[in-house]
């Protein structure tokens, strides 16, 4: 972990979120400190995206409280974003929304995201991978205190994805920001994060990557062996995804207890 200030950027205290009468998140408590990279893993429909949307304020908690440091800047890379043809928007203009940024900063951020040649292109004409790189550049540009990434590297090729995580690491060092990301790439989770939270409507388990990987709750969700990398694949293709009804982590699940 960072040896810089250990100030809390964000604290969730027993936050529950309901949508259309369905409980999506239940009693989520978590704290993010400056300079910390935390990854959320969990099966489809486990509330990962909902958690990020609650943090940006798009979802209101039905109970519990959320506190963050005053005037923090939040960088957010959504899972999916569609820009319609009817809206003429160059990459350059998109990066200046809502706050104007200088040409040199734009150039630098696009270079860093491997999208330097896209500056004058229309957003609606970018390919999926190019679009994702531009979103990353935008997240880098806002110099956030808290960076939220919702499967930010999906659609990127392997070098692009690796370069992205190098940028994230650099950003953490330069800005001392807290980073919360949702990822399906378990090898990334294992190498890049300080802490992993295993989510399935509630916090199944959390802790350092190695601890979580060996925790029974995690293995119940993702299977065991091959450090979880293959297990994730198996999980996604052989289980039903309606986990809120039948918790696969079973009775012994340590709801929200941090592993020591």
């Amino acid at each position: 972990m960072s040896n810089l200030s250990q100030q809390n950027v964000l604290t969730l205290d027993k936050v529950s979120v309901k949508a259309q009468g369905r409980q999506i998140l239940k009693n989520i408590s978590l704290t993010l400190k400056r300079g910390e990279i935390v990854t959320v893993v969990g099966p489809n429909g486990s509330g990962k995206s909902t958690l990020l949307k609650t943090i940006i304020g798009a979802n209101q908690p039905s109970s519990g409280s959320m506190r963050h440091a005053k005037k923090i800047r939040i960088g957010y890379v959504p899972q999916k974003l569609h820009i319609d043809y009817t809206l003429p928007l160059t990459v350059r203009r998109f990066l200046s929304l809502p706050v104007k940024v200088s040409d040199s900063a734009v150039h630098e951020a696009l270079q860093a995201a491997g999208a330097g040649h896209l500056c004058a292109r229309q957003m609606s004409q970018l390919s999926g991978g190019q679009f994702q790189r531009v979103l990353l550049a935008r997240a880098l540009l806002c110099k956030p205190d808290l960076l939220l990434l919702d499967e930010a590297t999906q659609g990127l090729d392997q070098p692009g994805s690796a370069e992205f995580y190098r940028q994230i690491e650099k950003l953490r060092q330069e800005l001392d920001c807290a980073i919360l990301m949702v990822s399906h790439e378990l090898h990334v989770v294992m190498s890049a994060s300080d802490r992993v939270i295993c989510l399935n409507g509630h916090v199944c388990c959390e802790g350092a990557p190695e601890q979580v990987a060996s925790a029974p709750q995690y293995q119940a969700l993702f299977g065991s062996g091959t450090q979880g990398a293959l297990a994730l694949y198996r999980h996604e293709h052989t289980h039903s995804h309606d986990h809120l009804d039948k918790m696969p982590c079973g009775e012994e699940c340590s709801h929200g207890r941090e592993l020591s």
Binding site: K53, I56, G57, A58, I74, G75, Y76, P78, L81, I83, L87, L89, F94, L97, P98, L148
Partner: peptide, 8 residues
Amino acid sequence: VNSDLAYA
């Protein structure tokens, strides 16, 4: 462009 980006 996107309401979630606006919220953030």
